[in-house]
Every structure is written in C-alpha cells, then in structure tokens.
C-alpha cells in the first residue's frame, strides 16, 4: 500500500517537473526577445534590460533552468512585473476563491447527481430515468460560459434577484454565499449529468452482483441493500471521475470567474494573459497543473484505501 502510494505520488511529481520544463522551454522557443514580447514593442531599452536581468535571461540555459527549479522548490514563483509583488503571494490570495467555487459547484452537483443516478438505476426505464438521461446529456454538452451569461441575464438583469459581480464583502459570509450561487450553479450544472450517469451505470453493474442477490435472499429491505451494499461500491468510480474532473473544472472556473468578475486563479490568469504578464501566468498555471497532477494519486490512493478488492491486487 505504502509502495503504491509512493509510486503514484512519484508519477505526479514527475508530471509536474515535465510540465515545468515544458513551460520553461515554451518561453525559450518562441520567436523574438521575451522582454519585448512582455513589455510590448514600444518599451524603452532600459526597461527591457531590467526585465531581461530580472528574469535571468542573460545566463546560459542550463543555469536558467536550475535557478528556475531552485526557486520553485523554495516556493518562490517569481515577481509580478507590474506590481512588484511576489507571485506566490498573489496566487495564494486568489486560490481560496477558486477552491471554494469548485467545492460549491461540485457539492451541489453531487447532492443532486448521485441520488438521481441511484434512483435511475433502481427504477430503470421509469419516467425519471429517461428524463434524467436526456437532461444529463443536454447539460453536459452546454458550455459553462453560456450558462453563466444566461443566468446573469435572467436572475440578475431581468429579475434583479442576485448580484452579478465580485465575490462579496470580506468577512460577510452571507453576502459571499449569495455571490456564490450563480457561479456555483453554472460550474456544477454539467456535473449533475456526469455524476448521475456514472453512478447509474456503476449501480446497475453492482446491483447484478452475487452479494446483492444474497442480501435479497436474506430478506434485507431494499433501502438497506442499496445504501449499505450497493452504493458503497458504486460510488467508487465517481472518485476517479472527480479527480480527472479537476482539470475540466479549472477550465470552466476560468470562464465563470471572468464572467462574474470573481477573484480567483482563473481570473488572475486571464487578466495576466491579457497584459501578457508572463510571470503571473506561469505561477498560476504551475499551481493549477500541480493541483491536477496531485488529484490523480490522491484519488488512486483513496480508492485503494476504500476498496479492499483493489487493495488486494496491489
């Protein structure tokens, strides 16, 4: 088990390192002088020289790569060219907003999607099952930014019920929660469909297994069979799905944050990309890649821990 955990984490770290090398080489491979690209064609020679010096672009490439890794290992993602603030600090200021948004979006999606999937599997071919199937395909495919814009149009502009912009007053939790409703809804909508479909398929598989038949033969109530014997196993594939989903969620979060003008990693990267502020883009991207790369081993280990059958094969 420990060896397995170490292997999975090692792979995640390797992926992080490769991504860093790719980001680093991307900056080297682009045609033209990085300082000019960042500052624009009209920047003065002194400014260019200062940026070149700050980014260490005059050093030989192996030295640059070593410094780059050394800095990241110390938790230093560089300095923002415009505000002169440390990028690590900027990223840490924005990260909680994105994590709260993702948790809220996934949270409501799981609360609706998992019971819906369960119900669809138990009452197969019922009206609710067919309705869920159509709705889930529909919601999965519609892009989150279209949902977000339509929500704003309807609930904020036409009805005036919900606020559009920002994440709410600092310290005022009720205000923050109200500001979270529409973004979380837009982010989670597609996942209701995903989760219900995965849970339904995996429930159908589990319900056909021998131990469920045995439980039925012993006369256990259906409710108990579903809750204690079927769902416990059927829920496992959703954990893997959620880990893979982190990437998709981060992508959707970019749109949702940009549209609702909510602070967060996504909006940070969009704003920095618009100003071609590469150190901030790089810091934000590395953080998201690390989040995604680490979610995979965590889910693998979680599944091995929860499912004795997987553990036995290790």
């Amino acid at each position: 088990m420990l060896l397995y955990a170490l292997q999975r984490t090692g792979l995640a770290i390797l992926i992080c390192i490769t991504s860093m090398v790719m980001l680093f080489s991307a900056l080297k491979l682009i045609p033209g002088d990085p300082a000019t690209i960042m500052l624009g064609a009209r920047a003065s020679a002194e400014m260019k020289a200062r940026i070149t010096e700050e980014l260490g672009l005059n050093d030989p490439i192996p030295v640059q790569l070593a410094t780059f890794f050394g800095r990241i290992l110390q938790g230093n993602l560089g300095t923002d060219m415009w505000s002169q603030r440390p990028v690590t600090q900027i990223v840490l200021d924005n990260l909680p907003y994105t994590l709260v948004l993702i948790a809220a979006g996934l949270g409501w999606a799981a609360l609706i999607g998992i019971p819906l999937g369960c119900y669809s599997a138990i009452r197969r071919n019922s009206f609710i099952d067919k309705f869920t199937a159509v709705i889930s395909v529909g919601t999965i495919s519609i892009p989150s930014f279209v949902v977000a814009i339509y929500l704003i149009l309807f609930f904020a502009i036409e009805l005036g019920w919900l606020p559009v912009i920002g994440a709410g007053e600092r310290g005022d939790y009720l205000d923050q929660a109200v500001h979270l409703i529409m973004p979380a809804f837009a982010l989670g909508l597609g996942w209701v469909g995903y989760l219900s479909r995965i849970v339904r398929a995996s429930m159908l598989e589990v319900m056909g297994e021998n131990h469920i038949r045995t439980a039925r033969a012993f006369g256990l109530p259906e409710y108990r069979i579903v809750k204690s014997y079927a769902l416990r196993i059927a829920i496992l594939p959703t954990i893997t799905l959620l880990a893979v989903a982190i990437g998709g969620l981060l992508s959707s979060a970019v749109f949702v944050e940009a549209i609702f003008a909510r602070p967060g990693i996504g909006k940070l990267i969009v704003d920095a990309a618009n100003m071609r502020n590469f150190p901030v883009v790089q810091g934000g991207v590395l953080t998201t890649v690390a989040l995604f790369a680490l979610a995979m081993p965590i889910s693998d280990i979680l599944i091995a821990w929860l499912d004795p059958r997987v553990r036995a094969t290790l």
């Binding site: 682009i30 690209i37 998709g248 970019v254 990267i269 890649v289």
Partner: peptide
C-alpha cells in the same frame, strides 16, 4: 506517455491562455 500526461495535465483553457500570452 510522460509527455502526453504532462500536456494532459494542463487544463485546456489555461493551456490556451498560456500559449496566447506567449504567441499573441
């Protein structure tokens, strides 16, 4: 495979923004 997994670990939109920052 390591290369594919690394590219894959960039969330799509974020990869797009990174490339757009570099190339315009």
């Amino acid at each position: 495979m390591l290369l594919f997994d690394s590219v894959y670990s960039f969330p799509t939109v974020i990869m797009g923004l990174t490339v757009a920052t570099l190339l315009g």
